[in-house]
């Protein structure tokens, strides 16, 4: 996986309750180093209370799902439920989620480490995720959504994309996702109209042009050529702007097919 440094810096900044600009002292670390550091920090935070979460999870082992879910909602709250979830079998966690409302599930997701929740993401019915997606879009939790995008089964991600009405939101989420290859595959499945709206939104903000560049760099030549055709249809001047941005971010070579089309 090609680790985008800016994406990882944004994610690490969130974990440390800082702004990316406040992490200048980490300038010598590349994207992979930042990712390794973030994972170590998240795991160490979880480990500090691991014993407690394990005990809570074990104490509810024999209780029916509905009762455990009720205790989570009424007694433990989202933070403890999220941390305890790593110690509950994924099948059971998915069954318990059926007893939670969208708001509670979104609160749990805000507290979870996506890497650790991968198995739950596989088991959880996508219909339960729709409401969570809407909640997170409303609260502009793009950094959480980006993190989950890296670990969400692609089929489910494709379905959940239907919930994102504003293309700028897709770009904001993408800016926190490390797996640009997945975003590229999901983007390539959009129809021409959706893609043109995405391109239009992207060229309204320099940070978005950079993001689209990173995503397109993961597309094959055929998809890049399609993106070039649609970009020209939105505005023939856009590709020159994209070339300048790609020159700055070092993605010119990876975007050869886009610029040659």
């Amino acid at each position: 996986m090609n680790i985008d440094r800016d994406t990882e810096l944004r994610r690490l900044a969130r974990v440390l309750h800082r702004e990316p600009g406040q992490l200048g002292h980490l300038a010598a670390l590349d994207g992979a180093g930042l990712m390794k550091l973030r994972t170590l920090i998240q795991n160490s935070l979880l480990e500090e209370f691991a014993g407690l979460f394990e005990k809570i999870a074990a104490s509810g082992k024999l209780a029916p799902d509905a009762l455990s879910a009720l205790l989570c909602r009424k007694v433990f709250g989202p933070s403890i439920t999220a941390n305890m979830s790593y110690y509950v079998p994924a099948d059971r966690a998915a069954r318990m989620c059926k007893h939670f409302d969208d708001e509670f599930m979104a609160e749990i997701a805000r507290e979870q480490i996506p890497e650790r929740a991968q198995e739950q993401l596989e088991k959880l019915p996508v219909e339960l995720m729709r409401g969570v997606t809407r909640q997170m879009l409303a609260s502009r939790d793009y950094h959480i959504m980006g993190g989950f995008t890296d670990y969400l089964p692609e089929q489910k991600a494709m379905i959940l994309m239907e919930e994102i009405a504003d293309p700028a939101d897709s770009l904001r989420i993408s800016s926190f996702a490390q797996r640009k290859d997945r975003i590229a595959r999901l983007t390539a499945q959009m129809d021409d109209g959706q893609l043109m709206r995405l391109i239009d939104a992207a060229f309204k903000e320099p940070a978005f042009i950079h993001e689209v560049g990173l995503v397109m760099a993961q597309m094959d030549a055929k998809d890049q050529q399609r993106m070039a055709r649609l970009t020209d249809a939105v505005d023939p001047k856009h590709r020159a702007t994209a070339r300048r941005e790609a020159g700055k971010s070092g993605t010119l070579e990876a975007l050869q097919a886009f610029f040659a089309a």
């Binding site: 974990v15 440390l16 309750h17 800082r18 992490l23 002292h25 980490l26 010598a28 670390l29 180093g33 390794k36 550091l37 920090i41 160490s44 935070l45 500090e48």
Partner: peptide, 21 residues
């Protein structure tokens, strides 16, 4: 992998982690 950071930067990072913790 953190040895690329200067001592002062590592100290600052330790402060960040301690605060987050």
């Amino acid at each position: 992998f953190l040895s690329v950071l200067a001592e002062a930067d590592r100290q600052k990072l330790a402060g960040d982690i301690e605060q987050a913790r």
